[in-house]
């Protein structure tokens, strides 16, 4: 089990937080083998923050590459992505992050 946090620059996310009680909209994925869950929350800073708990030890470089790529391609400054991971491949992580980001925007647009 490995835990790390990472803060990266990213363009500010454009939409406000979803209404309280609608948190089901900002959880993505399931904690299961080869999968992960991502919880999206707002914070007051300008950076995008990642808090990762993963069962696969020793893949920090790969994580950094995937998360840096995501921060560059998705305007997510002001968001925290907290993850519970059970050995997802980089492709699955990238996909879930994109889904989580999209869910946040969708929820925010309704709020």
């Amino acid at each position: 089990m490995e835990y790390f946090e990472l803060s990266l620059p990213s363009q500010a996310v454009t939409l406000a937080a979803p209404a309280p009680g609608n948190t089901t909209d900002v959880l993505c994925g399931v904690v299961a083998s080869g999968n992960l869950e991502i919880l999206v929350e707002a914070h007051s800073g300008a950076d995008v923050r990642f808090m990762v708990e993963t069962t696969a030890d020793g893949f920090r470089e790969t994580w950094d590459a995937v998360l840096t790529q995501f921060a560059g391609s998705h305007a997510s400054g002001g968001l925290t992505f907290t993850m519970n991971d059970v050995g997802s491949t980089p492709a699955v992580v990238a996909l879930r992050l994109a889904q989580a980001h999209e869910s946040w925007l969708r929820a925010g647009s309704r709020a």
């Binding site: 009680g21 089901t24 959880l27 869950e37 929350e41 993963t54 907290t82 519970n84 059970v86």
Partner: peptide, 30 residues
Amino acid sequence: LQEFCPPAERLASPHLATLGLSRAFDDGVV
């Protein structure tokens, strides 16, 4: 739908953590 104690409240299992196993924010039940 209004969820009680949603994932953001992080009611995960402390016992799985003790054993070094992955947890879920809702401990696997909505």
